[in-house]
Computed example of a mutant assay.
Amino acid sequence: MTRIYFLLGGNIGNREELLSEAVRKMTNQIGEFVHASSLYETEPWGFTHEQNFLNQVIAFDSNLSALEILNRTQAIEKELGRVRKTTQYCERTIDIDILFYGDELIENDRLSVPHPRIHERSFALFPLEELIPDFIHPVLKKSIKTLKKECTDELKVKKFN
């Protein structure tokens, strides 16, 4: 079993319901749900939009390979109305990113794990710090707590109700 950390996010539609539905579908298709951070409301990163994102980090234990998980999470995104656009940063119903797959390093044309921009994004670091503050990033060799302290991203991140 491998512990996998995911970042969920979305800013279109019923954001809370879409995140909950993603977790339900992942529980049926990925493995055993372990824990989840609080919900965080964050400004869009890399573009402007009138609706903020809701983000959450969740953890699962799974026997699936990282690529099998990627295939399943992309199918879940599609089921929940995600439309992939040519621009990297845009509004979406749901986004499911694999942040960590144990402490493995994965690099291929479809997947980079650990997620290559975790340390640049407060919206990932706030919920990660809530769950695993002392986890050492396998590439950067720093704890999540330290990465959050050093992060220069100034977009607002606040706990959501």
Rank of each mutant, 00 (worst) to 15 (best):
C90W: 01
E68S: 14
V57Q: 08
I136E: 08
E79K: 07
L140Q: 12
H49T: 10
L99A: 02
L99Y: 01
T146P: 04
K141R: 12
K25T: 07
S37R: 09
N14D: 14
V83E: 06
E91G: 00
P138T: 04
P127Y: 02
E150W: 00
P114M: 03
K159M: 08
R72E: 07
K158H: 04
L39C: 10
E32Y: 06
I132Q: 07
A124M: 11
E41Q: 15
V23I: 15
I106K: 05
N108V: 01
E68N: 13
T93V: 11
E154Y: 03
A36D: 11
E107L: 13
R3N: 14
V34Q: 13
N108R: 03
P114T: 08
P133T: 09
L39R: 09
G31T: 06
D109L: 03
Q88E: 06
A124R: 07
R121H: 02
T87W: 01
R72L: 14
P138I: 07
A66I: 02
S112Y: 01
L18H: 05
K141E: 13
Q56D: 12
L7I: 10
E68L: 11
I12K: 04
E91F: 00
P114I: 05
N28P: 05
R3D: 14
L99Q: 00
F6Y: 06
R82W: 08
M26E: 05
G13W: 03
M26I: 07
E129W: 00
E50F: 14
P116V: 05
E150M: 08
G9A: 11
L147V: 12
I30G: 11
L111D: 10
K149F: 05
G10R: 04
L125Y: 02
G10C: 13
S143W: 00
R84N: 03
T86G: 05
K148Q: 11
T93E: 04
S20D: 13
T48L: 13
K156M: 12
E130I: 12
K142Y: 01
E43C: 13
E16W: 04
A59T: 06
S62T: 14
